[in-house]
Design a protein around this nucleic acid. Structure first.
Length: 341
DNA sequence: ATTCCACCGGAATAGCGGGATA
DNA sequence: TATCCCGCTATTCCGGTGGAAT
């Protein structure tokens, strides 16, 4: 059934990016001056999840690195490295100046100083940049000639809001690559090439790929996740081919798996809060806190739980509706397309 | 229309853990 | 070894907001 599991991973970067020629050329041309030793503009890449932002960026950065020996690629996942310090640390790791820098005892200023005073050229990808608590790292890198900065985010407005006037003015002049959802036929052709490279022959029909594409609603990451779930299920059952029943079952499995992956990045207290909201449906903050206190041994304060709630909204795990005393929280509904999520 | 109060989130501060320094 | 430094999380304090009750 499965010949090469790597191909079905969501972080796999194919040797050619399909249906994104315009975007590939656009981003390449923005970064291109770096290969000649000139300063490159900052690029902003936006689009809904599964539109291929990360894939495009990795692909273009990889090509650039092949063409130019002394240009590094620094990939910073701002979801995990959301402070200025951690993001700078990641950059420093890749430009090879971490030797005598040790975590948490060296001040941010020193990190910035090291990042600034290096001749190592690099493409710095700030993925999920809307998750940055302090966007300072964007200005830190923006003005330095040895770095080409690529800012990747879901929605453009999340980069600027709130109170992001400084960031707006600096990024307004940047080249902007806007990406949209894939069409159904495009998704099918993406799936087909993954099948050809990762699965045995004739295990899945075109009609099934169309069903997967339909269920994924333009989200390539989800589509590949469904395909992977289906292939794994068929593998477990020792089936020779993927049946329609397996495909049907794989859709909700893939959806919950992706959600689960996000929940696993939360602390135990945050998980407790999340589960309270999940189990009780639309629920008011007061009730959330009461139930949370019952559930854990050593509860945090209300203010801390408020921070958790707002963080989980940022991560698209929860949504809040209503304001003031009529506010309620609930988990994000996968079946309803949420704007830009 | 006015008052009430649950809820929100900014800012300052404390405590922790790990590494550096004397 | 004792102390300092730093980032980070959680806590404390508090002014503001806007539905809901009167």
């Amino acid at each position: 059934m499965i010949r090469d599991a790597r191909v079905l991973r969501t972080d796999f970067v194919p040797s050619e990016v399909e249906h994104r020629d315009g975007e590939v050329n656009h981003l390449s041309s923005v970064l291109e001056p770096l290969t000649r030793g000139d300063a490159a503009d900052t690029a902003v890449v936006t689009g809904p999840s599964g539109a291929g932002k990360t894939c495009l960026t990795r692909f273009v950065a990889g090509k650039l690195r092949e063409a130019t020996l002394d240009v590094e690629t620094v990939y910073v996942n701002c979801w995990r490295n959301y402070t200025r310090y951690r993001a700078l640390y990641r950059v420093l790791e890749h430009v090879g100046r971490t030797v005598d820098v040790h975590r948490q005892s060296t001040p941010t200023d020193v990190l910035l100083d090291r990042v600034t005073h290096t001749d190592q050229r690099a493409v710095v990808v700030l993925d999920e940049a809307d998750q940055l608590e302090d966007p300072g790292v964007v200005y830190d890198l923006h003005g330095l000639d040895q770095y080409a900065v690529v800012v990747v985010a879901n929605r453009e407005q999340d980069l600027y809001a709130p109170e992001g006037n400084r960031l707006r003015s600096r990024l307004q002049a940047s080249e902007h690559v806007r990406m949209d959802r894939y069409g159904p036929d495009q998704l099918v052709s993406i799936l087909r090439s993954r099948v050809e490279n990762g699965l045995e022959r004739d295990v899945v029909t075109t009609a099934q790929l169309e069903r997967i594409a339909d269920a994924a609603a333009g989200d390539a990451r989800l589509a590949i996740g469904i395909l992977r779930s289906a292939a794994r299920a068929a593998d477990r059952q020792d089936a020779d081919e993927i049946t329609d029943e397996i495909v049907t079952a794989a859709v909700p499995t893939a959806e919950t798996e992706m959600r689960q992956a996000d929940v696993e990045n939360l602390t135990p207290d945050q998980v407790a809060v999340f589960e309270v909201v999940r189990d009780r449906g639309p629920v008011q903050p007061g009730e959330i806190y009461e139930a949370y206190v019952d559930r854990v041994d050593d509860p945090k304060t209300e203010r801390t739980v408020r921070s958790y709630l707002s963080k989980m909204q940022q991560y698209d795990l929860l949504v809040a509706s209503g304001s003031s005393r009529s506010r309620v929280y609930e988990v994000v509904d996968d079946d309803l397309p949420s704007p830009g999520a």
